[in-house]
């Protein structure tokens, strides 16, 4: 009985793993095929390793209508890192202020931030674009990243973490003569390192995967992220070079997947502890 249930669990999990992995494997194989063969519908699940050069080709030369993939990778990395680091910095500071100080309008400040918790950029896309126009930030790198840095999720998570820190620890730090900034740097940040790492993973992936906002705010090819680039490449209906599209898609997957897999333990804990 137990045995058979285990077998069932194994088969369910293997089917699930295949469901996730198969499309990626197919994309990898397609990247190594001749574009004319793909057009004829001759996809195969065996890669042609002698044609693996298509990855190098898109990396250096790009595809129809898009800059070289390495350039788009730089923009994507820049955007994802700016969003992840920027969000973490501003939300550590504000959560620290809200939890460890009493200042005028503290509750108002917290609520003003909190209300924006679930107002994704997709909802406010047109008005935010108008505001960016007034600020002359359209088609600039800060324009890509800065509006996405403002959000309450990270602040809320750090607020919870900080609130759980025992009073004795704060008391001890004060007795040792540590001022607030010293306390933040030497105690609070090291103690919350796990949450910080988890949040970094979540925000990096969030930043890397953005599509709608970059599409609206940046039209210059210099600011194409790799996700934007892929959709541009399939937008050319008549002669899509599918091998190049798939090579770019596989390259686009590698950084965020590597970040998630390598930091998996922290990521899962941070996600489930903070509830989003």
């Amino acid at each position: 009985m137990r045995r058979s249930a285990n077998w069932l669990a194994h088969s369910v999990l293997i089917l699930g793993a295949l469901l996730f992995a198969l499309p990626i494997w197919l994309a990898f194989c397609a990247a190594t095929l001749d574009p004319a063969a793909i057009d004829r519908g001759e996809l195969s699940l065996i890669p042609r390793l002698d044609h693996i050069g298509s990855f190098w080709d898109v990396l250096v030369h790009g595809g129809p209508g898009v800059p070289p993939v390495w350039r788009m990778l730089v923009v994507s990395f820049g955007m994802a890192l700016a969003i992840a680091i920027g969000k973490i910095v501003i939300s550590i500071l504000s959560a620290f202020a809200v939890v460890f100080f009493r200042f005028p309008l503290r509750r108002t400040a917290f609520w003003a931030i909190f209300v924006t918790l679930m107002l994704p950029v997709e909802v406010r896309i047109i008005p935010t674009y108008a505001v960016m126009g007034d600020l002359h930030m359209i088609d600039t790198f800060p324009g890509l990243a800065v509006p996405l840095i403002a959000s309450a999720t990270a602040t809320l998570l750090f607020r919870q973490t900080f609130a759980a820190i025992p009073d004795e620890l704060v008391e001890a730090a004060r007795m040792d003569g540590a001022g607030p900034l010293r306390f933040l740097k030497d105690i609070l940040i090291p103690v919350s390192a796990a949450n910080l790492a988890a949040l970094f993973v979540i925000l990096f992936v969030y930043g890397w995967n953005q599509y709608l906002w970059p599409l609206v705010v940046a039209t210059s090819p210099n600011l194409d992220t790799i996700v934007i680039g892929i959709v541009k490449m399939i937008g050319i209906d008549t002669s899509t070079e599918w091998n190049k599209v798939m090579a770019t898609a596989v390259i686009a997957l590698i950084p965020p997947v590597a970040v998630v897999v390598s930091m998996q333990r922290w990521f899962v804990r941070g996600l489930t502890e903070g509830e989003k």
């Binding site: 202020a97 200042f103 306390f183």
Partner: peptide, 23 residues
């Protein structure tokens, strides 16, 4: 247990508040 003062915390919360208001 909390730290004294109100200028420093306002300064710390300012970047997030500014971004929240602008965006």
């Amino acid at each position: 247990t909390i730290f004294a003062g109100w200028k420093l915390p306002l300064l710390l919360v300012a970047p997030q508040l500014v971004l929240t208001f602008v965006f």
